[in-house]
Nucleic acid binder design. Structure first.
Lengths: 233, 233, 233, 233
DNA sequence: CATGAATGAGAGTTCATTCAT
DNA sequence: TATGAATGAACTCTCATTCAT
């Protein structure tokens, strides 16, 4: 008995924060492996070497635990510094923002599935923290669209929510097979495709550049500056 | 005495087809009212005046029943004669096809929810009959896109699956709130918006019909904006 | 293998009524032995050789089961033909009705405890079937009091509810020790005592039936007491 | 920085007595608000700013805590100086003693409920301190009855325990609705009613005074004295 | 003395599925 | 063919009590 073997090394009697973190970690794993329907408190308890009772000390409800898993997961993504393109042509900025959204789906399909397929269907979705977190991601794309509308690069008469739905609808559809575990997708290619179509549409003759309308462009930029200096919202 | 009172008149000893139909009908109602998570065989049995045992005679599993409900439901939609626009400008044909897809969502949110949020996430989704049925609906839209590409109206270099994802992604996103029971949407407006963006994109200067009038259009929009910014919100 | 031994003789696959009856019987036993707080569905299931699931087929809730036990138990008492005295002196009729109430307590202390100590404290007590059943018992006594008031034998100015509370309060108090399992009581003696006090009160000189014979009566009682005190306990 | 913020000011390291008192106070509040069934050690701990562990340092068991709450509560009532009527007509003294008992119920329904409906049913009731305390209250009424019997004002042949049960049974019955939270009652009216009925009974013609039977009364008192000197129980 | 993290047994309840009748 | 009584495993959640710190 030179040295007792510590079977459960860091387990018993953890401080509050660490225990919560351990539970959340285990719960995340269970969610990833089983999906929310098969997610049981019993398995979470087993995986993190605690009892179910302990879980209920920290999370009042199975549902609460599930939501907090999603939240904390999201949090991590939002904490990453998002390397937004701040200069360069707007096309590239848009591409980059879409690319980033796609990359989240790629990196965390289980989280994406949970949010998109289970939480979003919930009548209380809009009151969840996850809803707000998701909005942040969406905003990163939409800010660029808005900027484009202001600068005259994008058609200002289009409802911005429609544009949002086209972009994120496309992102989801492009990734369903992957989320289902049946296929793969290229973040680069998808981002490029979506950017292209949402910008130029599918009609023939959409000018990729349109350098000839420079005069108008100039006029437009002047107008934009005027608007800004006049103090629009 | 003289004549026994028949408590359950039309139920006992139905031929196989009728019995199955009755069960499916009841199951559909339950699904509509409760959603797939709260869908219980007990309630189905009760609603169609049979026993749970009988249900299991025809459907080996709760899950099978659920799938067949979706199938038979879809079937009905596909049996409707779909009033496809076969002539007229392609823009109108596309609009019409998108409009029809949106109208299905509108008419049967419960079915839509089931398929989009629960079955689609299933690893076996592509083997389900529902998958094929859904494809038919999608095809109706895509046929027009294909036609457009062949005729030269639409850019032939674009991947048709990308276009599909943009259209149906947008359809879903535009209807989420409605599916969640939180809001409404206009079939007409959504169809128009989606058609417009998918065709012309969001970039300024996309030539509507007559590409030469674009300069004038843009000037007009600029004027509009200036007026707005001068006139305060 | 001449004859297979039937281990569980009358248990499996009982018709609805019999099964319910069996559960109620077992539940009654559990209640009698354990009291309502320790009453568990598990023990009921075990005692009647079924599963808990089966119990929940017939009784939606533990609480419902408990209430139905009380109800069915009471029912049995009310179904007994109650041998009401319809003639004779009112004193005797009253005595007899009180006697009958006491005899119920005596015969079913567990039921009495349940109703008096647990259900009666419940905010919903007045909506329970048990409340109505209990009223029937009370009514049997009160009808006689009312009759006495009408005939002029009892003081008409007294609130009948007050009289009710004195009689049934006394019944309960006289039986608490017995209900707690600590003692016994004489149905006859209690009934006689309660009747006497409620009729004549405790003030000296209350005229029995024939006011002239009171002196003799009292002397008689005095003699009785003297005899007792002289002749040991 | 300069001065640490004391989150829980007066809690840590209390002397034994103060700590116990604090726990009892909190426990009483919990009992009042929740009733004994919903009474949890966790809530008690939270309300007095300690931990459950500390509670178990002082009270070996949840049950013990509950009993001590009842005891200490009762103690307070008994410590109040009870303004007994020592002179005046016996009717008034009796009325006053009953009135006081009713006033306790009125002031502390939660305590009353606990004692009457939960502790009294317990097989160990007679060994509880609460039992003795309750007896003190009862004694205050019964002393007057006894006095009345000795003085010849009350019929001496009646079992005093029967009288006790009639009085306190009536008190409880008159207050059940109030204890259940469903109604109210008038202390004055109840006391008057109970006093009246217990004294004169319900039979017509009970003489409020009856001074004429004095000879018999004298005989009775003689007998009573004889009994006592002979050594009855 | 005080804590509060941890427990674990057990509660009520649900429901897809089976199978004797 | 049809029944519906029966199951039992699994679920979420509760809480008095313990004990290392």
């Amino acid at each position: 008995m030179a040295r007792p073997i510590t079977t459960k090394p860091a387990s018993r009697r953890l401080p509050r924060d660490q225990r919560m973190a351990a539970i959340l970690r285990a719960a995340r794993d269970v969610l990833r492996d089983r999906g929310s329907e098969q997610f049981t408190t019993a398995e979470v308890a087993e995986r993190c070497g605690t009892s179910e009772g302990t879980i209920y000390k920290y999370f009042p409800t199975r549902r609460d635990l599930l939501l907090q898993v999603a939240e904390s997961w999201f949090e991590e993504f939002l904490a990453e510094d998002y390397p937004a393109r701040t200069d360069g042509p707007i096309a590239e900025k848009l591409y980059h923002a879409i690319w980033w959204s796609l990359s989240i789906v790629r990196r965390e399909p289980a989280l994406t599935r949970l949010v998109l397929m289970e939480l979003r269907a919930d009548p209380g979705y809009r009151k969840m923290a996850v809803y707000d977190q998701n909005r942040i991601i969406v905003e990163r794309v939409m800010r660029i669209v808005q900027e484009g509308q202001l600068s005259g690069a994008f058609r200002p008469e289009l409802d911005i929510r429609l544009i949002r739905d086209m972009i994120f609808g496309a992102i989801e559809h492009q990734t369903w097979a992957y989320l289902r575990g049946e296929g793969n997708f290229s973040v680069d290619a998808s981002a490029a495709g979506i950017t292209e179509v949402v910008m130029r549409g599918i009609v023939t003759g959409s000018p990729p550049d349109d350098p000839l309308s420079s005069t108008v462009n100039r006029l437009e930029r002047i107008a934009l500056r005027m608007e800004k200096s006049l103090g629009g919202t």
